[in-house]
Simulated scan of single mutants.
Amino acid sequence: MTDRPHHRPVLPGAARFEQIDAGADPALLTEAAERAAEALVRGAGGSADSTLVERVVHLAESEGLETLAELWAGAPADSLAGVVWRLYLLRSWVYADPVGVAREFERGRTLAPVAEAISGVEDPPGPDEVRALVDAVLSGIVTSDFADTLFRAAAFARVAATGRATEQVTGESSHDRDVSAARLLTLSAQLEDAGRLELHGRLG
């Protein structure tokens, strides 16, 4: 993969988001979304700045997940913008129900041991551990090899999806459980495919 110069990024902030008019040309919106994602990933890569890492990890809280969705949710899974959105979506899901996620991960890791090893969740995987894992994944946008970050996120989602598919939850139909597990598995596959594209310099 061709080495890219790493510069201090201009992170998407309120002013940048406000400039994107909902009635603007879709092509311009797509271009703006990709530029913002590239600023995060390509501009920040390899940074050891703890303040910058914190800003990236907590971007959904500072800007609002809905705002990030408006910018990135429509981007294809094989684009840089689409991948960044999926990483933030994964973190949002974990923080919304860390107890449930930890339970699903615990159940799934015996059925998907290879993915469990790649994910890097501490043992035993409780709520604090799964939150720490997704924060570490988001920090990987600026501190680690981006492909490794994507593979780690994909592995985590795969283990959790496996656990969800086999878990019986009171009040939840088997159909709903299967659908939600399938969606999580799709997310895992998309992140893994993006990781392969990144390895070959074809992402974004």
Rank of each mutant, 00 (worst) to 15 (best):
A157H: 03
L150C: 13
A157M: 04
P127R: 00
A147K: 07
I141D: 11
A154S: 15
L150F: 12
A117L: 10
A115H: 14
R158H: 14
L133V: 02
G120L: 05
D145N: 14
A132M: 02
F146C: 08
L150M: 12
A136Q: 14
V130K: 06
D148P: 00
P124F: 02
G126R: 03
S119I: 02
I141V: 15
T149E: 12
D123S: 10
A132L: 01
F146L: 13
A117W: 07
D135M: 01
I118Y: 07
G120M: 06
T149D: 13
L133A: 13
G140N: 12
A157I: 01
G120W: 03
A153T: 09
A147I: 07
I141L: 15
L138I: 07
R131G: 13
T149C: 13
E129I: 01
D148I: 03
I141G: 10
A136C: 09
D148C: 05
D145E: 15
G120Q: 11
R152F: 06
L150Y: 13
G140D: 14
P125C: 01
D123V: 02
P124Y: 02
S144I: 01
T149Y: 09
P125T: 01
R131L: 07
I141W: 07
V121L: 05
A132F: 00
T143N: 12
A117K: 12
E129P: 06
R158M: 10
R158D: 14
P125V: 00
A154M: 06
E129A: 15
I118D: 10
T149K: 03
V134L: 07
P125I: 00
A136R: 14
S139Y: 06
D145I: 01
E116L: 01
P124Q: 00
A155P: 06
F151D: 15
V142D: 08
V142Q: 08
S144V: 03
A153K: 11
L150R: 08
F151G: 08
A147T: 11
G126E: 10
L138T: 11
A153I: 05
G140W: 08
E129Y: 04
D135C: 01
R158C: 09
E122R: 14
E122C: 00
P125Y: 04
I141N: 10
P127L: 01
A153N: 12
I141C: 14
L150D: 09
A115S: 15
T143Y: 01
T149M: 06
S119Y: 04
V130S: 07
T143G: 08
A132N: 09
A117Y: 09
G140E: 13
A147D: 14
L133M: 08
G120S: 12
D135W: 00
V137Y: 09
F156P: 09
A157G: 02
F151W: 12
A157T: 08
P124N: 00
L133H: 13
F146I: 04
A153D: 10
P124V: 00
S144P: 02
R152C: 12
E116Y: 09
A147H: 10
V134R: 06
L133T: 10
D145W: 03
A136V: 03
V142H: 05
P127N: 05
G140C: 12
A155V: 04
T149V: 11
P124A: 00
R152S: 13
R158T: 07
A157R: 05
S139N: 07
